[in-house]
């Protein structure tokens, strides 16, 4: 293993990042390259009209239409919470779901109040919703006042959300994005007004709160599946396929790591921490 390390140092030594504060490691770089190649292969497969596997049903995403339908029947608004993140992966996932929900909202002439913590997300959310209304031919129905930036203070934002939930007596509460300690505040406030609730977050610590308080919860990576699932787009489905292959690869590495370690070899561990 030392020989291999020396060889890598000799070949790539001047290029490899040695600043430990920034170094993500050779292992992650190799993983990143393999993932990019797998992704490219899967996208090519999707574009060449080869058969793609069907996505399994995700109850939380199937329930979007149910939640919007309920709000429409009750004549009460839907609340869409984009979350506490700036432009990070969960926020982008949430914006993708927002596009779908906004389109349905526009079709059914229901009202939707959209809130977010960071002002940087506001113009993007406004544009997504406005385009949804234009897409269904109802640009005049778009209400700019229903897209609200509340506060960048964590609990100021939480208080603002609870206020809207209570004042508007919402019928559906969609909470998708990155959340911290305030997750349960949103979910319980929604429960108190009897709203149907769908939640999903990238924060593992907050997921149990959503499971306890919401009707439907997107578990772990289901949050990132939403965009492909709701649009049924072949290329997006292909990216999920690449993701699943990588996951299978990781499971194999974990099993090999367990076996090697059990039998006294540190080969897998040394390879993963090589550089």
């Amino acid at each position: 293993m030392d020989g291999l390390k020396e060889a890598i140092q000799n070949i790539f030594g001047s290029w490899l990042q040695t600043d430990t504060s920034n170094n993500l490691g050779l292992t992650t770089f190799v993983f990143f390259v393999i993932f990019a190649i797998t992704l490219a292969v899967m996208i090519k497969k999707a574009r060449s009209e080869q058969p793609m596997p069907k996505l399994r049903r995700v109850a939380g995403l199937d329930a979007m239409d149910e939640a919007i339908g309920r709000a429409t029947e009750m004549g009460k608004p839907v609340m869409y919470n984009i979350g506490m993140g700036g432009f990070t992966a969960p926020t982008f996932a949430s914006l993708a779901v927002l596009g779908y929900v906004a389109k349905r909202i526009a079709q059914y002439d229901t009202r939707m109040v959209t809130v977010m913590r960071y002002a940087v997300v506001l113009p993007v959310a406004e544009e997504v919703i406005k385009q949804a209304y234009i897409g269904v031919g109802k640009p005049d129905s778009y209400r700019p006042d229903d897209v609200q930036f509340l506060s960048e203070q964590q609990f100021g934002y939480a208080t603002g959300c609870v206020g809207i939930i209570q004042r508007e007596q919402i019928a559906a509460n969609i909470i998708i994005g990155n959340y911290l300690a305030e997750s349960l505040i949103f979910a319980e406030a929604g429960t108190q007004v009897g709203a149907i609730q769908i939640a999903g977050t990238n924060n593992n610590v907050q997921t149990p709160f959503f499971i306890a308080a919401c009707d439907y919860t997107l578990l772990a990576e289901e949050l990132y599946v939403a965009s492909a699932y709701l649009s049924q787009d072949r290329v997006k489905t292909a990216t999920l396929l690449a993701q699943d292959y990588m996951k299978q690869g990781l499971v194999v590495i974990i099993i090999l790591g367990v076996l090697f370690t059990t039998f006294g070899s540190k080969l897998i561990n040394d390879l993963l921490t090589l550089y």
Binding site: L39, N202, A220, Y224, V225, M246
Partner: peptide, 10 residues
């Protein structure tokens, strides 16, 4: 979640 986030970013 990590794989999902990476896929979303890609």
């Amino acid at each position: 979640l990590t794989l999902g986030g990476l896929t979303q970013s890609m």
